[in-house]
Design a protein around this nucleic acid. Structure first.
Lengths: 336, 336
DNA sequence: TAGCATGATATTATCGATAATTCAATAGTA
DNA sequence: TACTATTGAATTATCGATAATATCATGCTA
């Protein structure tokens, strides 16, 4: 049985209008601080609204105004700490700009991603922050067709021209690998993400270029971002008899799993194997070493993302898609 | 400048009606699979809708029907892993029941919590899952007044009668402490959360009762859940010259920080100090030990929470608030 | 004093869907 | 035959707010 909230005596603009003697429209304007309402009138209306416990009905407002003040955050998985951190920061930054966030998980699955974007559109969100699974561009097309402003976060498409905020992935791969080489590693295993993800390709390029500089050979495997794949990959590498004295991981989460595996197999870090990760989301943890990682200023990244999106939403947008790249630095810790 | 999405030629029920020759209402019913629409008509309409790329406008629908199919999740902080995990599970379970989630952070602050609930109400959410900061009940009153169904998650109020799903905190405190005693600990430090949180009080009771059974003295301090407080507390305890051979922490996150501190101070785990946490959110991590922790079936917890909430939303609710308690078990790992 | 900008409020028309009600046509029953 | 059910669709009336426009005093300028 559906509930009809406003049937049960909850105040609306109309009831405030009746009580104060003004019209609903004037009440609406007064509550929105329109300058065309006399100061005294405004105060009288606001007082009445307060006393009656009025709560603005955003649904009705949205229908008429076409603005929902809502942004959908479409990410792989909230429980992935990297995403959790991003979502937390985005929520805060967007809240300060007057937007609420709708969370939609894709599980890195194309169909779910498409459905998530569809949901966002049907809810008339003002904008979308999307970390695309990159298995297709249907979701993007859907947003384009419905003219929903969006910004890609963390990944981009070579052949699609749209707003995106990414890290300097190539640079990150380069400096992390150089760092391991500088620490004496001669055979560095790269536990990379899937190749269809732009950041994985870029980091891979950086990794290979750094090795080439030093005249070393790459040993690269691709593991699934969703957990489970790392151990299997390491088992397999051991079975193949491949040795290594360094590990560079696509993400800190992959590095963490690898560290567990190494520990269980009695391989000391950093004595036997030096490690570096990416994302710098474990900075407050000791496992028991601190994990060396490629970092960027996440707060600034969030601000840029939000700014870009809000610009689009509020119509001050530029024509072409803009790609912003966040500078990265290497935070060396005891793991290397 | 506001965007008017439906002005730019995007299809609505009306445009489908015009194209098919039926009325908007019939189109609406057809798309909702109402039985009072002839099979052939329905198919014709659905076909047209598909071809035109129609997307249901949930905002308009919500205004009329009074249902938004949205649930607000009001938690302390998405980037706290415990909450991140809960949110992830809730999102999935609710999605399967036809609800989207709006995320609102409280930072464990009363004013923010109140504002979050206010926001939820103004968006006409169908229900709320709230982990109250327990510094006041204004937020609850607000929901009661607006007749918004809600379920408390993880914490409850002694003096307020409402739906809630909590863990068997007393039992958890009991078994964790008994476990440490059983492992030979004689002086167990309890790093508890703030006393105004129900679960902290309950776990504290369990801890003290277990110690009393063994004729031991409690050493309890309260640390803030938000990070930073743990190190300070341990510093202070050391300054006071208080020794301990076991630590029971209110949460795994607190335990993790404590473990880092101990490590930095050269205190071996579990050789010198045995540890147990609560929540079991680090099960996949080795730090480098596995952390012993009090666990419950989180998936079942989520299902119960969602079920309780959806029952309320759909009007099949019982009169009085119902408190469900999740059984807990101790997962012993190498930290103890 | 006519004319006109300005400020303050009222009127009216939507936004896009759904609930409630009505109506027409066909089928089944006494 | 007359009458009631049943089915399938059309009509009409909102949901609660806001945009667009109109109205009506004032006060000021020419």
């Amino acid at each position: 049985m559906a509930r009809f909230k406003t049937k049960d005596g909850l105040p609306t603009l109309k009831s405030i209008a009746e009580r104060t003697g003004f019209t609903a429209n004037t009440v609406s304007q007064a509550l929105r601080n329109s300058p065309s309402v006399a100061r005294q009138t405004r105060e009288e209306i606001r007082k009445a609204a307060r006393e009656m416990g009025y709560v603005h009905n955003v649904v009705a407002s949205s229908l008429r105004s076409g603005r929902t003040h809502t942004v959908a955050l479409v990410f792989g998985d909230v429980s992935n700490m990297l995403f959790a951190i991003k979502i937390r920061e985005l929520e805060e930054a967007l809240r300060k700009r007057g937007y609420q966030v709708l969370i939609l998980n894709t599980d890195e699955d194309e169909a779910l991603e498409r459905r998530a974007v569809h949901t966002a559109i049907s809810r008339q969100v003002d904008g979308v922050v999307l970390c695309p699974c990159q298995k297709g561009v249907e979701a993007l097309e859907l947003m384009e067709r419905h003219r929903v402003p969006y910004v890609l976060s963390g990944r981009y498409f070579d052949d699609v021209d749209c707003d995106s905020v990414v890290w300097a992935d190539y640079q990150g791969g380069l400096i992390a690998t150089r760092h391991l080489i500088g620490r004496g590693c001669r055979r560095i295993l790269f536990l990379n993400g899937p190749a269809f993800i732009s950041s994985a390709r870029e980091r891979g390029r950086g990794y290979r270029d750094a090795l080439a500089e030093a005249g070393l050979e790459p040993v690269e495997v691709s593991v699934s971002a969703m957990s489970g794949g790392v151990r299997g990959a390491l088992d397999e590498i051991r079975a193949r008899g491949v040795g290594y004295d360094g590990i560079f991981a696509f993400s800190d989460l992959i590095a963490l799993e690898a560290a567990c595996w190494l520990q269980e197999h009695g391989v000391g870090i950093p004595d036997k194997v030096r490690m570096a990760g990416f994302d710098d989301i474990l900075s407050h943890m000791c496992i028991p070493f601190g994990l060396t990682s490629v970092a960027a200023d996440k707060t600034q990244e969030t601000l840029i993302t939000v700014d870009m999106l809000v610009r689009r939403i509020e119509g001050r947008q530029e024509q072409r898609g803009k790609r912003r790249t966040m500078d990265v630095t290497l935070v060396a810790r005891t793991s290397s």
